[in-house]
């Protein structure tokens, strides 16, 4: 499973080569997350409507290696937007992927853009 974890690498906006169409905006729950399949990757995409922001991270929680983060609740800690894993409530910054309440390794994060009602997630390959 360590191998699975290594599939997920943060993608910088400037390095995006492929903008993958993940689905129509309406398919993403308001102030919630949803999971998309991209090749062998599972990416959690969050529609943070309250902040008018979109985020994407790996769907895999590094704590117990569960494919679950898209089903987590999102919210904020101070100014930082975060997602809480449903299993053991580990929280991660949606901006940096950093574990906010522990020492788990960072989540990989991916750029998201919305155009003409469709949501796109950015990948390098």
């Amino acid at each position: 499973m360590i191998d699975t974890l290594e599939l997920y690498k943060t993608v910088e906006y400037s390095k995006v080569k492929i903008w993958f169409q993940a689905g129509h905006v309406e398919n993403f729950p308001i102030n919630g997350g949803a999971c998309i399949s991209y090749g062998s990757l599972q990416i959690a995409v969050y529609n943070f409507a309250r902040r008018n922001e979109w985020y994407a991270t790996q769907n895999l929680c590094p704590h117990k290696m569960q494919m679950i983060l898209s089903r987590g609740m999102i919210g904020s800690e101070g100014e930082t937007p975060k997602v809480a894993c449903p299993y053991h409530k580990k929280t991660f910054s949606l901006k940096t992927g950093e574990n906010l309440n522990g020492t788990e390794c960072n989540l990989a994060t991916y750029p998201v853009k919305v155009e003409n009602g469709y949501v796109y997630v950015g990948f390098e390959e």
């Binding site: 943070f48 309250r50 101070g78």
Partner: peptide, 19 residues
């Protein structure tokens, strides 16, 4: 929930207050 947060709370909520 959003109405409650707007009227009586602040920030964007979290995994403690939402449930």
């Amino acid at each position: 929930y959003d109405e409650l947060l707007d009227r009586f709370g602040n920030g964007d909520g979290c995994e403690t207050c939402k449930p």
